[in-house]
Design a protein around this nucleic acid. Structure first.
Lengths: 151, 151
DNA sequence: CACTTTTCCCATCTTTAACGTAGGATTAAT
DNA sequence: ATTAATCCTACGTTAAAGATGGGAAAAGTG
């Protein structure tokens, strides 16, 4: 699983919105707060606005705001807005790939893999991230010291 | 998470080995059995052999064999052999990326995400795949009908 | 020894995606 | 008017994905 720069930047931007929910933040505000490339970030913010995760206001004293409360925006929502489906197998959705012979069960493995991802990314909201308090079962996944070793 | 053709092909090849553990299989055998591009498959098989997952024998009546029992080869082993680390954030290992401000907890999210992946891919062996009987908690992830909807 | 079958190794190619920049049009406040 | 912002389109650069081709080296067979 490769987390792209788009996803990383989008989530970091969302964390800033959750921390300052009553201000409109400009692309420049966010770029300097998190050290992100401004023009690239712009296209990411528009993806988020297209999906209703942010609202935008043009003109002077404009910027972006949360489209709904940070507690109602999951990290999976953000990933899908900027990068499309959470999981794909050779570009196809996991449930649609078919195999023959002894590989027949592989479809189920891919569906399970996506489900495992969803258990983390749909459970964690932007509000959780900004507060630093992750859902219990997500926190539990990080508690095993093995989880922190390079693998 | 994008499952690449390399990973997909590698796992399908491994399923064939698990189904016929006592024969040496050639790249051509595997390519026709699973309908894979032969030359591309060759480089995948050599990756698997480099990691000891397969052994190879050159010359007439040569081919590839399992390097250890199929029940001792996890899908994670196969993924790592052909595609490198299971998870990366902008090319870096999840535990090494650092964030500032309200994004500070994001490192933990990425580590948890990788751990969730590992719970599926390290639990499932090539023997499980070929037999069609996945580990209980993997099977359970696929039982929710929601798991089969496009997302 | 010649011949065949295979892996091994290296080079190359095409297409796509990732990552980012540039510049102007549009909107809105002062 | 001026300024500050999003919107929109186009472009560029680099790396990765997904292959293909051809020959060298090894191993078995007649």
């Amino acid at each position: 699983m490769q987390v792209t720069a788009r996803v990383d930047y989008a989530i970091r931007a969302m964390a800033e919105f959750a921390a300052q929910p009553d201000r409109a933040l400009t692309r420049k505000d966010l770029a300097t707060a998190q050290g992100l490339p401004g023009k690239f970030l712009e296209s990411i913010l528009r993806d988020l606005a297209r999906d209703g995760i942010l609202t935008s206001q043009r003109g002077a004293s404009g910027g972006f705001r949360l489209g709904r409360p940070a507690a109602d925006i999951t990290l999976a929502d953000v990933v899908r807005a900027v990068d499309g489906p959470l999981a794909a197998v050779r570009g196809q959705p996991p449930e649609s790939v078919e195999y023959t012979g002894p590989a027949r069960a592989l479809t189920r493995v891919w569906v399970a893999t996506r489900a495992a991802l969803r258990q983390v990314l749909e459970a964690t909201t932007v509000a959780d991230l900004a507060s630093g308090t992750l859902p219990e079962h997500v926190e539990r996944l990080t508690e095993d010291t093995e989880a922190w070793r390079r693998r």
